[in-house]
Simulated assay, not measured.
Amino acid sequence: MDGMSRAEVDKAESKDFALGGKPMRPRDAATLILLDRSGDEVQVLLGRRHRRHAFMPGRFVFPGGRTDPHDSRVKTVSPLPPEEELRIAGHHARASRARARAIALSAIRETYEEAGLLIGERVPFTSTRPGWQGFVEHGVSPSLERLRFVARAITPPGRVRRFDTRFLAAWRDDVAVALPEGGPTNELEELCWLPIEEAKALEIPAITRTVLEELQKRLADDPGLRPGAPAPFYRMLRNRFMRDTI
């Protein structure tokens, strides 16, 4: 998608987004790319969104959603790597650490809600936040130390919803509890683990395919996903969808 004009991006994403929205600022969002390296090929978790959704209807996506700033107050058994905090937050203001925590924890919470996978450690956990009661019930404390920042993308203007999305990655063996019935929101159907090359052939959004291609390249050079590695940042600048590195 790098270098495409706005018209070209609109055409490529016409089935992913409802177009024609009023001008709006993008809202923070978080997506978690869960990776399974137990076999010969790295596999990735995807699920299909309901076709009634205005945002990416019927598309296979990673678990994720809008960031809740209150998630920054949720206790964890381990912090984000310092190398990842500022890059996730995206600025150098005093609130960077809280913003990064909120984004990262939102990705973990959404993965539970949509896929029934609780990432963390099996140690007692308490919280009064409604979205975290599953972690309380199953005795899982969320952990941030193995999350990796792999990409950032801002939804172009002219959509009914716009997000400033951070794509984070974690490993399947970071999952402390996997609920057989899936997540409580039922937002994702047909959850599946697939090799990355096969995942790219699914009915996925253009930006998801772009991020998967970026991730393939990074895994080839950095299979352990070291913290602090350069990552792509996609956004519309001067009527072109541009790729920067952060």
Rank of each mutant, 00 (worst) to 15 (best):
L237Y: 12
R59Q: 15
R172E: 13
D68C: 05
T245P: 11
G139E: 02
P142T: 06
P81L: 07
T210Y: 13
K75P: 09
A169N: 05
R218C: 10
M24K: 04
L194K: 06
L105I: 15
R37Y: 06
L35M: 06
G64N: 02
R152G: 07
V123D: 03
P230V: 03
M4G: 13
E110Q: 05
S72F: 11
Y112F: 10
R73L: 11
K15M: 02
A178V: 13
H91M: 05
A229W: 14
D2Y: 15
V136W: 04
L202W: 06
F55K: 05
L46A: 04
A206I: 09
G183W: 01
V42P: 07
G134W: 07
V77R: 14
E198G: 08
L34K: 00
V9M: 03
G64A: 08
V160L: 11
R235K: 07
L35P: 00
D16S: 10
D221Q: 13
A153F: 15
A29K: 00
F163Q: 05
M4E: 13
V77P: 11
R59P: 13
S106H: 01
A95H: 15
L86V: 10
T126C: 00
E198M: 08
R109V: 06
R6N: 14
A169T: 01
L45N: 09
L86R: 15
R129C: 08
F60D: 12
I88F: 08
R109C: 07
K75A: 15
V150Y: 10
L147P: 01
H70K: 14
P223G: 01
R48K: 14
R240V: 00
E113S: 09
G120N: 02
R49Q: 12
I108G: 00
L219W: 06
R101I: 11
P157D: 03
P57H: 09
A93Y: 15
A104R: 03
G131R: 03
N239R: 03
R109E: 08
S5D: 10
G120R: 00
S106Q: 02
E41P: 02
G183Y: 00
D40N: 11
G224F: 08
G39F: 09
F55G: 12
I88A: 02
L225G: 00
A231L: 02
E145F: 13
M56F: 06
E41R: 11
A231R: 02
T128L: 13
L32R: 01
R101L: 15
D71A: 14
G65R: 07
P69R: 01
F17K: 07
G183P: 10
Q216I: 14
P57I: 12
E187P: 01
E85H: 07
W132Y: 08
A98Y: 11
E213F: 14
E181W: 14
N239W: 07
E198K: 15
G120W: 07
G139M: 04
R162Y: 02
D2E: 15
P232Q: 05
G3D: 00
L191Q: 10
G182I: 07
P57R: 01
F125V: 00
R99N: 13
R146H: 12
L168N: 05
R129V: 13
D164F: 01
W132D: 06
F125G: 01
I207E: 03
S106L: 03
V160D: 05
G39I: 08
D10A: 10
G158I: 11
D221Y: 13
A104Y: 02
V123S: 02
A95P: 13
G134F: 03
F241D: 00
L32V: 04
E85C: 11
E181Q: 14
V123Y: 05
M4Y: 14
S38A: 05
G65M: 09
